[in-house]
Design a protein around this nucleic acid. Structure first.
Lengths: 219, 219
DNA sequence: CCCGGGTGTCAAGAACGGGTCAAGACCGTT
DNA sequence: AACGGTCTTGACCCGTTCTTGACACCCGGG
C-alpha cells in the first residue's frame, strides 16, 4: 500500500489485515519502489498523489519487472488521468473517496486473475543478462546498447520465459494495435537482437522462431 | 457487447471498430450466452440491465466456461451492486454514463492481462504432455515442433478430454466456417499428429477416430 | 462376390512465411 | 544545414507448410 495519508493507511491496514492480507506500507514513491523490490508483493495499491514522485513514475518504475496487479487510488476523477494510469500499466483505478467494500471486491477481482509467476527484475542466461529495472543488457561482461524498439521487443519476450508469444501480441505491445499485421518488423528486429545477443546468431539458442505462430525465449 | 440500448450499442460498435476490435453484439441475456458460446470472444462487455435475464445470471452462465475478461456496465452506482458483480466474476465495473476513452482504457487494461486460464492448462498423458499456455508439446523428454494447423487441431481436441469432437466443429475451429466439409484435411493432419505423438501411430491410443462422427482425445 | 462410403497413407506442386541485406525515410541534435 | 542513429520498406532466396490428388484399406450391405 502506497499512500501519504497516514490516517487512510492505518484504516486500510486494519481492514486488509482483518481480511487476511499481509500488508506492507510506504508513504512516498522512492520507498515504495524499494519496498516492492524487497518484498515482492502479490498486488500493489498505489495512490497517485505522492510527495516525491508522480504516481505514474512509480508505476513506470514498477512495471518493467512487476507483473502482478496494480490498483491505483486517486483523488482525481478526470478520465484523462484514468486513461493515463491504466495505459501506464494500472489494472484498476478507484477514485477517492471510495467505499471500502468496493475496494476489497476490486482487489479480489484483480487477484483472481492469477498471481502466477514470481517476478524477477533480472533475467539471466548463460550468455547474457537482461536487467528489466535498469533497462540494461549485458553479454558476457560487456554492456550492449539496444535501440528502444529492440528493447521493447526483448523485454516482451523475456517476461514470458519458455512461453510462446504470438506475433500479433508482440506487434501490438511494441508498435501499437495498428501494426498487428506488420510481421516483417519482427523478422528484422529479431534478426538484430540475435546478432547482438546470441552466441551463434544463425542458430539461435534463446530466441526461437515458431513458424506461423510467434517467438519464444528459452532460458 | 451485451446491451439492450440499441443507440449505445451502435455508438460502441463504431468506436470499437475504429480501434480495430471485432465486435459481436447481443441485446438480451439468452442471445448473449448463445453468441458467446458460438464466437468465443476475447472479452465480454456486459450491461447488467437486460430485458430477460438479470446481468448476474448472464455472468453466472458465462463463467463456468468463459475464462476471458468480463467488463460490466451498469446504471447503478451502488457499491453493493459493484461488489456483487465483481465477486460473481466480473473483472471491472463501469457505471453509466461513462467516458468512452475511459472504457477503452479499461478494456485495454483487462485485455493486457491476457486470457489466463484458471483450470489446469497442462494436459498430461503417459507418453506426451500438452502445455496450452506455453504452446508446447513434449513427447517423453524431447520437445516436438508442431505447425500452426497441427497445434490448432490438437489443442481443440485436448481441450475436450474424453469427449467426442465433431468433424464440422474441428474444421470450423481450425480452418474457419468455410471449410466445414473438407474432412480430408482432418485425415491428413490427424495422421501427422499421430506420427508425432502416438507411440504406435498405426494403432492410436490417444487420438481415436469415431467413423462418421469425429475424433476423440482419450487421456 | 462386388460395391461404396468413410478412412489412412503418401507424395508433389503451390503458397506462404521466414532470414537476410541494404537503401531510403525519418528524427532529434549539433 | 549536416550529421548520426533509428525506423521503415523493398528485394531476394530459402525452407517449411498447406493443399490437393492418387491409391490402398476396412467394413457393411446388396
Amino acid at each position: 500500500m502506497v499512500d501519504d495519508d497516514a490516517q487512510l493507511l492505518r484504516a486500510l491496514r486494519i481492514t486488509l489485515r482483518a481480511a487476511q492480507y499481509e500488508v506492507v506500507t510506504a508513504t512516498d514513491g522512492r520507498s515504495a519502489l524499494r519496498e516492492a523490490a524487497d518484498t515482492h508483493p502479490d498486488v500493489v495499491v498505489l495512490d497517485l498523489g505522492l510527495p516525491d514522485l508522480d504516481g505514474t513514475e512509480v508505476l513506470a518504475g514498477l512495471r518493467p519487472w512487476f507483473t502482478g496487479p496494480v490498483l491505483v487510488l486517486s483523488a482525481r476523477a478526470d478520465s484523462q488521468d484514468k486513461v493515463g494510469a491504466l495505459d501506464a500499466g494500472a489494472d484498476d483505478y478507484v477514485t477517492k473517496p471510495f467505499d471500502m467494500a468496493e475496494l476489497l471486491a476490486r482487489l479480489r477481482a484483480v487477484l483472481r486473475r492469477g498471481a502466477s509467476e514470481p517476478d524477477e527484475p533480472v533475467v539471466r542466461t548463460e550468455h547474457f543478462t537482461v536487467d528489466l529495472v535498469a533497462r540494461q543488457v549485458t553479454v558476457g561482461d560487456t554492456v550492449v546498447r539496444l535501440t528502444p524498439t529492440e528493447w521493447g521487443l526483448l523485454s516482451e519476450l523475456v517476461r514470458a520465459p519458455g512461453r510462446l508469444v504470438g506475433q500479433r501480441q508482440l506487434l501490438q505491445a511494441v508498435w501499437g494495435p495498428a501494426y498487428a499485421t506488420e510481421t516483417h518488423y519482427l523478422r528484422v528486429y529479431l534478426n538484430q537482437l540475435r546478432r547482438k545477443l546470441e552466441p551463434d546468431p544463425a542458430h539461435p539458442r534463446y530466441l526461437h522462431t515458431e513458424p506461423g505462430m510467434g517467438y519464444r525465449f528459452t532460458p
